[in-house]
Design a protein around this nucleic acid. Sequence first.
DNA 1: CATGAATGAGTATTCATTCAT
DNA 2: CATGAATGAATACTCATTCAT
Lengths: 195, 195, 195, 195
Amino acid sequence: MAPKTKEQYAKIREDRKEEILNAALELFARQGVNHTTMQDIALKAGISKGLIYNYFTNKEDLLNELIKSFINHLYDYFDPDGDGILSTEEMEYFIEQQVENLMKNIDYYKFLYMLLMQPSAQEMMEKLQLEVLTSKMWKMIGTYFQIHNFTDPESETWIFHTILDGIAINYVFNPDKYPIDKIKKLVIQKYCNLK
Amino acid sequence: MAPKTKEQYAKIREDRKEEILNAALELFARQGVNHTTMQDIALKAGISKGLIYNYFTNKEDLLNELIKSFINHLYDYFDPDGDGILSTEEMEYFIEQQVENLMKNIDYYKFLYMLLMQPSAQEMMEKLQLEVLTSKMWKMIGTYFQIHNFTDPESETWIFHTILDGIAINYVFNPDKYPIDKIKKLVIQKYCNLK
Amino acid sequence: MAPKTKEQYAKIREDRKEEILNAALELFARQGVNHTTMQDIALKAGISKGLIYNYFTNKEDLLNELIKSFINHLYDYFDPDGDGILSTEEMEYFIEQQVENLMKNIDYYKFLYMLLMQPSAQEMMEKLQLEVLTSKMWKMIGTYFQIHNFTDPESETWIFHTILDGIAINYVFNPDKYPIDKIKKLVIQKYCNLK
Amino acid sequence: MAPKTKEQYAKIREDRKEEILNAALELFARQGVNHTTMQDIALKAGISKGLIYNYFTNKEDLLNELIKSFINHLYDYFDPDGDGILSTEEMEYFIEQQVENLMKNIDYYKFLYMLLMQPSAQEMMEKLQLEVLTSKMWKMIGTYFQIHNFTDPESETWIFHTILDGIAINYVFNPDKYPIDKIKKLVIQKYCNLK
DNA sequence: CATGAATGAGTATTCATTCAT
DNA sequence: CATGAATGAATACTCATTCAT
């Protein structure tokens, strides 16, 4: 049997970790963090309870990694053609995408907002704050508002986020009554139909 | 002859229940539901552990009652002079008030948003939905937008809520960086500085 | 309002006690001693929890009174015409009666046998032993066997009880398969069809 | 490579379960089900409280398994030389054995009769009924009565059991007064001194 | 690396019993 | 006498975490 290289081992570890996180995420989202046991996660991930502790020091650490992972991938799909400039079409696509995701994964979003309410999320947010604020995405949106002559581009970026979060919260609370399509159109009209 | 009248007992029960809910709310908000023991709640409420179970079947039930109570009082403080008409000053006051509350009680808000993410909250929301949507407040805001010639008053009402929730979420996540004062001013400008 | 005499009070107390015992008996038999709370008993007896403690010092005492009461009434219905002599017809009637009772009240009998297995029952049995063994019934059965020329009347009395208990146990365990009618006939044949 | 084979784990589990059942049986019999805590059982079995729950879902389940185990082993010791024919000597030995067991383990018998009074025992009894009735022992006793020209061998089998149970109950209730030796002799005389 | 038996601190929950009114 | 709110000791049960193999 061929011994594996260090890289191969690292790869295996990384994959395994990912699998555990995925299992945990699904279970946490469906049945809550507290009602999900390490056993449940192990079962779902197809491994033994003990093995989880080779990858995460404890349950809290697992949860934190989940939050971190989420925050890191928060805007992954915000990845336009890479020219660094957001066209109105790309902006529209981004908004459409956000709303579609939201509608498809209510439970998931609920859980994520919940995660972000965790005290432990706060620290991580703080650590990641600078990154986020100086992120490509953030800057691109700011630039977008600048290019399209919004009065206060920076504030508008915040407002933009505020609205997106507000939509998510309202929809998640009240998926039946909240007129998400109409709101989406209004948002697109405000931010993409620029003369 | 009964030692106390039925009314007296009912009063005692009502008061105790309230006390327990208050104690639980504060502890839950500060240290989280899971890190709060029934013992903690009893201690804070100045009663014995066992008594809680005379009023709530279990911890979950207690949490649900808390959610219900919260939803019921959601807009209690939205109670203007009672003429049924929202002046721009009253609207401004309302917004200022909201933001002030938010800033004063971040933990509380975090907990409340968390509560509302609970699956059990959903049912209650649904039950209360009609009430909320047909509530005086909701109507008054709609009327306000109508009077001030907003294009689509109903949608504007939703947007208004969307923005308020978005502000809360963003501030709660990121109290240091989120420019809540500036956003507040922009909101007031949009909704109160009419002409 | 006319004041009550001591006798009236004593009567009320006795009746109330009886009611509580009846309520307890039914609940204990149906759902077991441990799954029956004092609250349950109070509810069934139509009184308040606290009042039970005016009549019984505690739950165990209540159970003991129940056992005592049961033992005392064990052979109540063994009360023939009072001439002190058991005719073969009366003996047959007694056996028929026993079996009928058994078949009608399986749960009740189960519970009673259970009660008698309680350690606390033992003491009482001992106290009551002499009474039982010297009881009218016991003597009458002994006399019956003497009159009808059984070899060892005293042992036969024990055997008689042994068989009756054995029938009860077997029927209670296995009401569907146990041929109680046939056994009953054989017992009657043995003890009543005496030439 | 698994650290232990499936078989090894299965063996461990089987042994542990047995140990727990044994510990529980002894404690239950001596001090009653309710006065025996899971802690007690764990202590007696030399394991931790929690481990019990790896083998039994709860206390009730543990009790049920005990009943099941008892019923399954009810007649284990009825295992004569294996020629399938019960000699009068073997019959006598069986009766002697039964009585001796009874006298040695009053508490144990009390507990077992109690167990069998449990509602949950009934179901199990029903399931096992056919097996018991068609068991080797049952048949052998029937054959015994047939060979020795009892009028109705089947009924006699039932009567035989009735008497044995009756003896047990009476002795258990009243070990001091019940003339068990005399009764035993009479039973042996009836069933073993044939011609 | 991987397993799952084993641990035990931590807690929710029950309910007999008390007692002020 | 009667009530039911209040107590708190007693315990079942959970589950994250450890560790021998």
